[in-house]
Design a protein around this nucleic acid. Structure first.
Lengths: 227, 227
DNA sequence: CCACTTCCCTAACAAGTGTTTGGTAGGTTA
DNA sequence: TAACCTACCAAACACTTGTTAGGGAAGTGG
């Protein structure tokens, strides 16, 4: 894989004066200075609105409302509505893969790897529930756009990690061999991520508790076996 | 529950002359005659576009394009974009509950009921994949609108059926008692329906095959037990 | 031939969309 | 005090949106 599923972040980087008086051929926005903290704040509220209403149904005026300012003012911080979405998703994916890569590099057995991946996933949902909800709703449509191609990359890396682990598990006789592994992958993947649509932080169950219950169901089944 | 989770269908009904020359106070559209077959055709293509692009991102011009006509012409058949969505979803839910009600009325044991519900669900996905995809994406936002309140009703009836069956199963010692039943319900429900986002009719697996695999996973787990 | 129906087109509408431009209040630095 | 920077507002822009009004072509029945 060329360059992992990570993300070509277009972080602030504070534009190191490279175009203060710069070339008259400059095509892109001058992108004025804007404190990273304020950006984060605004991106967080934007993410909430996106998650609640859907990206396309969300107007920049709604975001501005939620942030207590006027629509045009958003363009002091970001150069487009799409950029906000981009930054929200790429920031999330970056953090997500930090966690995943750590798990995958730990050299655990297949069953333990699955357990760790699931647990890590629910923790990410806890931390980035809005971003996950957006990702889950818009990912398929967005990944067609070149700008959001990194979504496909991430998804491929994701699939490779899970499928590989499941296969290792079958080979090691930790998992059943009679199940279609690709179907199993889809089921597991979907269930984990849709949780973002009903999960509310501070609710009944902690992320770890949810992960435990989920793993118990998927690994051992809900049927009561005769003893 | 007042009137079950079914649906206040605004089917064609071909408007039984009730307003041919009717009352000048008529506030709503005269709703011209339009063959039910053509309506179905148009609704099917509309559903495809809605499912692919999302409801809000879908313009009436895109639907018209896909149908090979111009945007305004759609309004000969329907009186709004929202009406199309309404008809698509309510038609789907009506058919869905026909199947579900049959299963629930069959008087099966808890485990067999779950199996039948899951199987029935995957069959519905096979038949109404576009409608299911739309439902799954837009349901949460739509059910806020009064017009789409029947989505909430349906969802409640849905939850009651599944939760009830799971509880019966625990009481009958068919299912494990140590799992949070509400969490289990959510996991199962979600996994079944998200399948609509990747399922393609005519693919590798038939709906019944997918149901079998899924049930095997959920009921018995993916872990290989020592014999 | 005429009347009528069915189905679509042409052309426009008002409202809402993302975005830009120029300005300005308040703070910091010199 | 003057110069400057940050973070916002006010007002408009060009375009897209869902929707409507009027018309016309093709077919059917009398």
């Amino acid at each position: 894989m060329s360059d992992n599923g990570r993300v070509p972040t277009n972080k602030p980087d504070t534009e190191p004066e490279a175009q203060r008086e710069a070339k008259p051929t400059a095509k892109k926005k001058p992108q004025v200075t804007s404190s990273p903290e304020r950006r984060r704040e605004l991106l967080d509220t934007a993410a909430e609105v996106f998650a609640a209403q859907g990206y396309n149904a969300t107007t920049v005026r709604k975001i501005a409302d939620a942030a207590g300012m006027l629509a045009g003012s958003l363009y002091y911080h970001f150069d487009s509505k799409e950029s906000m979405l981009d930054e929200i998703l790429s920031a999330f994916l970056t953090e997500l893969w930090e966690g995943y890569d750590a798990v995958l590099a730990a050299g655990l057995g297949p069953r333990e790897t699955i357990e760790a991946l699931v647990t890590e996933s629910f923790r990410e949902i806890d931390r980035h529930r809005a971003a996950v909800a957006i990702y889950q709703k818009e990912s398929r449509t967005l990944s067609a756009q070149p700008r959001f191609h990194y979504l496909s990359d991430s998804q491929q890396k994701f699939e490779k990690a899970w499928l590989g682990t499941l296969e290792r598990g079958v080979a090691a006789k930790a998992f059943r061999a009679d199940l279609d592994i690709r179907l199993t992958y889809r089921f597991v993947r979907d269930t984990v991520w849709v949780a973002a649509s009903w999960y509310r932080p501070g609710g009944q169950h902690s992320p770890d508790e949810i992960a435990r219950q989920y793993l118990s169901m998927v690994l051992d089944g809900i049927a009561l076996r005769p003893t």
